[in-house]
């Protein structure tokens, strides 16, 4: 464990807590894409298959449970909670996210480190996480006034993977065998997808204005 990875995990933890806080306290999911939340639930389900068979550390297991629990409960809130679901604008959240799942699965079957079920599912979760934010970014472009919590959520979600890239650089130089091209490339693609969001987020913070993405 290094400082970059710990900072990345904490940033990721904060992003889901910010979202849960928003949905649980003000009982609203306005501006949040259910499709992105469903994709993330799928990412964690596919990545943490070995949560009970491959014990690494208490920290690792606890964090996996938090990510699984939070992502599935956010999907539950947005789908079934009688108050929260009313604030979900489904006619704006129209990204066809099923078109993301199949290509990621096919790519994972083609390009992976080892052709086993667990390894393919793990690789699938990496590819899917790289594109999971797309429905949310599209929704943000359509949402007139993005509320602060939603903007912070997306910012933290992008920042965590950027910190992971620093973690991979650090591990590459400190651990001889640590080479994971698949993880690195998909992590880089994922972070690059946030590039324009980061730009507008920084601009709104610098000029102290409301965050607004151009259509």
């Amino acid at each position: 464990m290094n400082i970059f990875r710990l900072a990345g995990d904490m940033t990721h933890l904060f992003s889901v807590l910010v979202l849960l806080l928003k949905i649980h306290t003000i009982k609203s999911c306005a501006g949040v894409s259910l499709k992105t939340q469903e994709l993330y639930a799928l990412v964690f389900a596919a990545r943490y298959l070995d949560i009970f068979t491959n014990y690494i550390s208490l920290y690792n297991t606890v964090m996996k449970l938090i990510f699984l629990g939070s992502s599935f409960s956010i999907v539950w809130y947005m789908r079934y909670h009688k108050i929260v679901r009313r604030s979900y604008d489904k006619d704006q959240d129209t990204f066809r996210h099923y078109f993301l799942i199949l290509p990621c699965l096919l790519l994972a079957l083609l390009i992976n480190e080892k052709f086993t079920f667990k390894e393919v599912m793990w690789t699938f979760s990496l590819y899917l996480e790289a594109v999971a934010i797309l429905p949310q970014l599209v929704l943000l472009q359509r949402t007139r006034n993005i509320d602060n919590l939603t903007g912070q959520y997306v910012f933290l979600l992008g920042a965590y993977r950027a910190l992971y890239i620093l973690n991979w650089v650090y591990r590459y130089f400190t651990e001889p065998h640590f080479v994971h091209w698949i993880t690195w490339v998909s992590g880089l693609v994922q972070t690059l997808l946030y590039a324009d969001f980061f730009y507008y987020y920084f601009q709104s913070w610098k000029n102290n204005q409301k965050l607004h993405l151009p259509a």
Binding site: R5, D9, D50, N54, I56, N60, K64, F67, T183
Partner: peptide, 10 residues
């Protein structure tokens, strides 16, 4: 073991 250790990230 190598592979298991490498899967120590979230």
């Amino acid at each position: 073991i190598k592979n298991q250790v490498d899967k120590d990230e979230l």
